[in-house]
Every structure is written in C-alpha cells, then in structure tokens.
C-alpha cells in the first residue's frame, strides 16, 4: 500500500485509539477512587491522542516520504484530520452529556426499559413531557455546576463570577456565524 493510503487508514482508526485511551483513563481514575470531570478527561484524551497518532502516522507512512515539502503537507494533514476527528469525538460525548434532545430521548428510552415487566409489551414509557424534561431551574443548576467543574466560573458566597472566557468566545463565534448564514437571533418561545 502507498504512503497516502496508509496515512488515511491510520487516521480513520484514530478515534478508536482515543476512545480506548479514554476508557483506560476513566478505569484508572475509578480504580484509584479519584474523582474526575468527564468533559475535561474526554477533551484531554482527544488532545493526548495526537502523540500516538503522529507516531503511528510516522511509522506507517510519513517516514517513507522523502520530499520535505510533501512531509510538511503530510504532517499538516495528520494534524487537521486527527484533530477534526478528535473534535467530533468530543462533540459526540458532549451530546450525550449536555444535549437536551439526547437527554429527553435517552430518558424516554431508559424509562421504558426500567418499567418493562414480562408481558408489559410496548405500552410502557415515561409520562408526558414534564416527566421527561428537567425543570428549567434544575437545568440551570446542572450547567452552573458544570461550569464550576470546568473552571469557567467561580463562586463567591452565593454569587457566580466569570473566570474563563472560552464560552464567551464560542458565543461570539456563534453570533457571527448566525449572522453569516442569515439566521435571526433566537427569541423566547420562537422557533428559529
């Protein structure tokens, strides 16, 4: 197989490597009884995945490339593709952790399974939307706690103070992108 095809195949396997690393890291944390913030560990595992992925890319493909310019493009390709896949992996985790859509869907799914008894058939499930959904206050509390864990806010008495700027940058990027594609800003009770 040629160097290019080897490189693409190595990179396609990279999310599995990150996932395996992530499982191992969480298992170690649990084995040593150490608490962890999953959003941090997942992000750091995706980032740390650069090391084995660059090593594998070098071993299976890039060491056979003689031209320095080609090598530079190859390294840039590894960087772009692995980190795009790493970002995709992190977003998939984030969906499972923070998405209200996925939360509601999983709640309905788990609700059915919990209630399932022999002969119950499919007529089991969780009751109406208010039981599926977290209350707004609870949703705020969950998010504030998550922001504290991520070090983006801190608490002084009962007041919350902003300490990190990542989400503000994300917010500005989202605002810019919304303007670029011609979407209006979301309004209370209005479907975009």
């Amino acid at each position: 197989m040629d160097a290019k095809l080897n490189l693409v195949l190595v990179l396609l396997a990279s999310p599995l490597a990150v996932f395996a690393l992530n499982i191992l890291v969480h298992a170690l944390f649990r084995a040593f009884g150490m608490p962890f913030v999953a959003q941090k560990t997942v992000f750091l595992c995706a980032l740390a995945g650069n090391v084995p992925v660059f090593a594998a890319a070098w071993w299976f493909s890039l060491r056979h490339v003689a031209d320095p310019l080609e090598l530079a493009f190859g390294l840039a390709f590894v960087f772009c593709l692995h980190n795009a896949l790493g970002c995709f992996y992190y977003q998939c985790f984030s969906l499972s952790e923070t998405s209200l859509h996925i939360h509601a869907l999983t709640e309905v799914y788990l609700g059915r399974n919990r209630d399932e008894t022999p002969g119950a058939g499919v007529n089991t499930g969780v009751q109406a939307s208010k039981e599926v959904a977290l209350e707004a206050d609870e949703a705020v509390a969950v998010r504030l706690n998550r922001l504290l864990e991520l070090g983006q806010v801190c608490k002084d008495g009962n007041r919350y103070l902003l300490t990190g700027g990542i989400f503000l940058h994300v917010s500005r990027l989202f605002d810019f992108w919304r303007w670029l594609i011609g979407c209006s800003a979301p309004e209370p009770g209005k479907r975009p």
Partner: peptide
C-alpha cells in the same frame, strides 16, 4: 449513547 457512556464508565444518562 447509553452504550458509549457505559463503556466510558459514566452514568447512562448525562446531566442534560
């Protein structure tokens, strides 16, 4: 999603 979280050793349901 449930399997993904189980493999990662996390609760089946995220915080939302």
């Amino acid at each position: 999603f449930v399997l993904f979280r189980r493999l990662l050793g996390l609760p089946e349901l995220g915080g939302g």
